[in-house]
C-alpha cells in the first residue's frame, strides 16, 4: 500500500536516460541535414539550368533577336513573333479561364445543393485538372477547328484550348479559398440583411481573392509553358511575321523553343537558349504581377 503511494523522482542522470537524449539530438541533426540536402538538390538543378541557359543564350540576346520573327537563317531569327503569340494566347486564356473558373467555384461553394450531381461535378473537375495536356489539344482540334471552323494556328484557338486546361485549376483553388473564408463573416453580412450575391461580392470574394490569385498563377504558369496542345491545333507552323491579331497564324514561346531545338543547324542552339531566357523572364514578370496583386489585396485592411 505504501509502495503505491511513494513518489520517486525520475533520475535523469542515469546512462539510459543520457543515451536516450543523445539519440534524440542525433535524430534532430539527421533530419535537418536531410532537409537541407533536399533543398540543395532542387536549388542546384535550378541554378544549373539558369547558368547553362545564360552561358549558352546570352550571346544570342540582341536587338534583332528580340524584335524579329522566325527565319530559316539562325542569324536572322527573332523571338518577338512567338512572344506576341504567347501574349495573345495568354490574354484569351485568362479572359476566359479566370471569370468562368471563379464563377464556377462560387456557384459550387455558395449556391449548389450538396447532392449526387454536385459530387459528380466535383469529381469531374478534379479529374479534368489531371488530364494530360495533349488530350486538351485533341479536344481543341476536334471542337474549335473541325466543328466550329475557327482559324487554324491562331492565338484565339490556342487560348481557348489552354483556358479549358487552366479552368479546373482555378476552380479547385477558388473553391479552397472560398471555403477558407470563415462562416461567421457570411453570418454577419446575412444578419444585416445582405443578399447572397452581396455576401459573395462584398465579403467572400475579396477575402478569397489572394487564394484565388495563387491558383491562377499556378494555372497560368502551366499554360504559358504548355507545348503539346498548341502543336495539336497547328501553332507549330513556320511564322515569319508577328501575328497582328487573335485570329492571325502564330506560334508561342515554348513551341518556338521546341521547333528550334529540333533544328540541325548549330546556330539554333544559342537561339534556343536565348528563347528560354525570354520565356523564363515572361513567366517571372507574370508571376511577379500576380504576387503583387495578391499582396495588395491581402494588406487592404
Amino acid at each position: 500500500m505504501s509502495d503505491a503511494l511513494r513518489i520517486d523522482p525520475t533520475d535523469w542522470r542515469t546512462d539510459t536516460m543520457r543515451r536516450r537524449i543523445r539519440a534524440r539530438y542525433a535524430a534532430e541533426r539527421r533530419f535537418r541535414l536531410a532537409g537541407l540536402a533536399a533543398i540543395l538538390i532542387s536549388v542546384g538543378f535550378l541554378a544549373f539550368l539558369l547558368i547553362t541557359m545564360f552561358v549558352n543564350g546570352i550571346g544570342g540576346l540582341d536587338w534583332t533577336f528580340l524584335t524579329g520573327s522566325d527565319a530559316t537563317d539562325p542569324d536572322r531569327v527573332g523571338i518577338w513573333g512567338a512572344f506576341k503569340g504567347s501574349l495573345l494566347t495568354m490574354l484569351v486564356t485568362i479572359a476566359l479561364a479566370f471569370p468562368i473558373g471563379v464563377l464556377s467555384a462560387v456557384y459550387l461553394e455558395e449556391y449548389a445543393p450538396r447532392n449526387r450531381w454536385t459530387d459528380v461535378i466535383e469529381v469531374s473537375i478534379n479529374n479534368l485538372a489531371a488530364v494530360p495536356s495533349i488530350i486538351f489539344g485533341l479536344l481543341g482540334l476536334a471542337v474549335f477547328l473541325n466543328t466550329m471552323h475557327l482559324p487554324r494556328s491562331a492565338p484565339l484557338v490556342g487560348g481557348l484550348t489552354l483556358a479549358l486546361m487552366t479552368m479546373p485549376v482555378i476552380v479547385i483553388a477558388g473553391r479552397n479559398a472560398i471555403k477558407s473564408v470563415p462562416p461567421s463573416i457570411r453570418d454577419a453580412a446575412l444578419g444585416v440583411g445582405a443578399s447572397r450575391i452581396q455576401v459573395v461580392f462584398h465579403h467572400v470574394l475579396p477575402l478569397a481573392l489572394p487564394g484565388i490569385l495563387t491558383g491562377t498563377i499556378i494555372g497560368m504558369a502551366r499554360a504559358l509553358g504548355e507545348t503539346a496542345p498548341l502543336l495539336m491545333i497547328g501553332m507549330r507552323a513556320f511564322i515569319a511575321s508577328p501575328p497582328q491579331g487573335f485570329t492571325d497564324p502564330a506560334t508561342a514561346l515554348p513551341v518556338q523553343i521546341f521547333l528550334w531545338s529540333d533544328e540541325v543547324s548549330r546556330g539554333f542552339v544559342e537561339k534556343t537558349s536565348a528563347a528560354i531566357i525570354v520565356l523564363l523572364a515572361f513567366m517571372l514578370v507574370m508571376n511577379g504581377l500576380a504576387i503583387y496583386l495578391r499582396n495588395r489585396f491581402e494588406t487592404r485592411w
Partner: peptide, 18 residues
Amino acid sequence: EQLRARVGMVFQKPNPFP
C-alpha cells in the same frame, strides 16, 4: 433580406468584417 434588417442579430463570437 428585409426581415433580417428588421430583426437584427448579434452572434456568439464577435464577427466584425475585416
